[in-house]
Design a protein around this nucleic acid. Structure first.
Lengths: 200, 200
DNA sequence: TACGACATACCGACTGGTTAGTCTGGCGCT
DNA sequence: AGCGCCAGACTAACCAGTCGGTATGTCGTA
């Protein structure tokens, strides 16, 4: 504990990440407003001084959680969307993948959909903008399928995307890790539902 | 303001309902935790004395909002489910109706899915129980269709219900009253998506 | 390699402000 | 002459963020 930099004393992970992890868990469990800064720093084994050394505000902490999730999901979507496969498969893969990664990070998901409106107006705007990019990318995929005739044109692509992601946002409400279905099974079922709904 | 009972002075509606209406609007706009009881009583044109005369706590107010929505939706679902029609039509009607009534009360909906976890544990449990009843009724409908062969058996009925209601809960996130689609049009589209997904 | 100057990482007491809920009292109807 | 209905001041608790202070490491210079 003498030679190591302070950032990692205690356990091996650096303080900022410990703070982020503690905040994520607590925000998901109790909600943003109900979680005090004091609780977060205690869970991370530091004090307020440390938190405000690395983060500008409690709000910043929340924003970081969002940024991480958004970046991850956008990267994955882009990878699937750009793949060299027929549209149906690209849509299916992307739709199923987002289910799996959402289940893998259920805490992030529940924070995302319960606490977005407690971000400061500017940060909220920023998050919405990135969220929109994601939405549009997915919509473009659906529209491609509609143009090429493999998907029905009956429902506007926008609505289809909102429909699918509504259910994904609510995974954190009903999915139970110790339930009968594995994340992959749920993902397959939800992707099936989407693809069947799109069938002409 | 002399002859009328206090319960209705100011305008015509009784104080408890004015409080409930003000609370609903404010909870939806700012969230439960960020709304102070002071704001609520000011919006309703009364004081804390009045609020705590009719309600036991701020929490009670939130619970009332839930109770009203749940009762309404359960009644409507029961009516559609018990109708003398083929299963497909009953499912379609029920699925579309819940969309319309949700859009008609978007405030209630956004409170519902954002603030449920801030209810006291017991009230939360109670709400979950009623919510479950609703879910099961809907699931029974789907299962009936699966048994009689008009719906595919590929996806568990439970999952189908969660899929559909996930998107309904999120209507408040993306539906814009001044957007291009009327509530009824959205309802028809979402019901179509559900029915197409269930097609064998 | 010795040393001073500066930067980084963190501590923890403190402050100013907000909040849910209580309580005493009074008005007007019956 | 009581009782439902409500006003509004008050309290006890809590909370985000600040700030002065300390310990540790780094780097330039001679």
């Amino acid at each position: 504990m003498t030679a190591v930099p302070r950032t990692t004393d205690g356990d091996g992970t650096p303080v900022p990440q410990r703070l982020l992890a503690a905040a994520t868990r607590l925000f998901a469990e109790q909600g943003y407003d109900r979680t005090s800064v004091q609780e977060i720093v205690e869970a991370a084994g530091v004090t307020k001084g440390a938190l405000y050394h690395y983060f500008g505000s409690k709000d910043d902490l929340l924003h970081e959680v969002y940024a991480r999730v958004l970046r991850l999901q956008q990267e994955r979507l882009d990878a699937f969307a750009d793949a060299d496969e027929p549209v149906e498969k690209r849509v299916r893969d992307a739709a199923a993948d987002v289910v799996v990664t959402t289940i893998d990070n259920l805490d992030d998901a529940s924070i995302f959909f319960r606490s977005m409106h407690q971000l400061s107006p500017e940060k909220n705007k920023q998050v919405r903008a990135e969220r929109r990019r994601y939405h549009e990318r997915f919509r473009a995929l659906i529209e491609e399928g509609q143009r090429t005739g493999v998907f029905t044109k009956e429902t506007p692509a926008d609505l289809v995307v909102d429909y699918h992601f509504g259910s994904i946002h609510h995974l954190s409400t009903w999915y139970r890790p110790n339930g009968p279905l594995s994340p992959q099974e749920v993902a397959d079922h939800l992707a099936d539902l989407l693809l069947r709904a799109l069938r002409p």
